[in-house]
């Protein structure tokens, strides 16, 4: 028994080292995250950083001009995009564009489709943003990003621990248990913890780390409890709706605590889902990012 525990520990150690060896987020995006947190940053400061990366610039501009933001006139350059959409939005667009690479890849098994996974992530992101606006959370932009990245840990499993991840996916489907439980049993660490370590490595703001780390157990997070709850609820709502697929088939009911915190009774839920449908229509540009 002791020996097994020891083996498990060694294995987790190896996983952690592998995450540490992952390529960092692009230098440009890291700089963007850094300067946006400084209130004295001007729109030109931010745009001059983004413009270093031409591909990123083009993608950010394309998203800025998408129906999702619905600005009535053409946004011609990044400086305008910053002035019009705001610093946080541009930071999140840059982040989205650069993490998108991580979400793409060839599907290697029947249990995990990259396209469905991306769809799920964008859906949860939109839903988080709606929930955040509903309760006037400090930043609905951050909530959007937390939603987008909440399952990022799964991409690591898919790529680097493929066989064990497939076992966990199967186990979750057959035993009807949540995927994170299957991951714990088979791999010894779940996608929440792995995601948090990745976020930490990328220097993402604390609330994003918390949102990723506790999206299945928001009650365990104290400081960023609201963010964790937003992601938790958005995730459940999207699973219930069958929006995309993140490999997790168990649909968990919302806790009364979470509903109370987000002031979400059945009527409010219905209203929210109606809004989500509208936003999903406008978010085609995000879904179709693979066609860039």
């Amino acid at each position: 028994m002791d020996d097994k525990l020891h083996q498990q520990e060694e294995k987790i150690q190896r996983i952690l080292e592998r995450i540490k060896a992952l390529p960092t987020l692009s230098v440009v995006v890291a700089r963007v995250i850094q300067v946006v947190s400084n209130p004295l940053t001007s729109a030109s400061d931010l745009s001059s950083i983004i413009m270093v990366d031409q591909a990123l610039t083009a993608k950010v501009l394309r998203l800025a001009n998408s129906a999702f933001y619905g600005f009535p006139f053409r946004i011609k350059n990044i400086t305008q995009a910053v002035s019009i959409l705001g610093f946080d939005t541009i930071r999140n667009l840059a982040l989205t564009v650069s993490v998108h690479k991580i979400f793409t890849g060839d599907d290697r098994n029947a249990f995990f489709s990259h396209q469905e996974f991306w769809k799920h992530s964008v859906g949860v992101a939109l839903c988080c943003s709606l929930l955040a606006k509903k309760i006037k959370y400090k930043s609905h932009e951050s909530a959007f990003t937390a939603g987008l990245l909440h399952d990022i840990g799964k991409t690591f499993f898919e790529q680097y621990m493929h066989e064990e991840f497939v076992m966990a996916l199967k186990d979750s489907a057959e035993k009807k248990i949540p995927l994170y439980q299957a991951e714990m049993q088979i791999i010894g660490i779940d996608h929440q913890a792995v995601g948090r370590i990745m976020a930490e490595k990328w220097n993402l703001p604390h609330e994003l780390q918390a949102g990723i780390n506790f999206h299945h157990h928001p009650e365990d997070e104290q400081e960023e409890n609201v963010m964790a709850t937003i992601v938790n609820v958005a995730n459940s709502l999207c699973n219930k709706k069958g929006l995309g697929n993140s490999g997790d088939t168990a649909i968990l009911p919302l806790s009364g605590e979470a509903r109370a915190l987000l002031n979400l009774d059945e009527k409010a839920e219905e209203e929210l889902m109606g809004k989500l449908d509208l936003e999903l229509n406008e978010a085609q540009a995000f879904f179709n990012m693979t066609s860039f």
């Binding site: 946006v36 209130p39 004295l40 940053t41 001007s42 729109a43 030109s44 745009s47 400086t79 305008q80 002035s83 705001g86 610093f87």
Partner: peptide
Amino acid sequence: TPEGDITSRDLS
């Protein structure tokens, strides 16, 4: 003031 010189602090 050109739009590029406006900071996020100004806007908030």
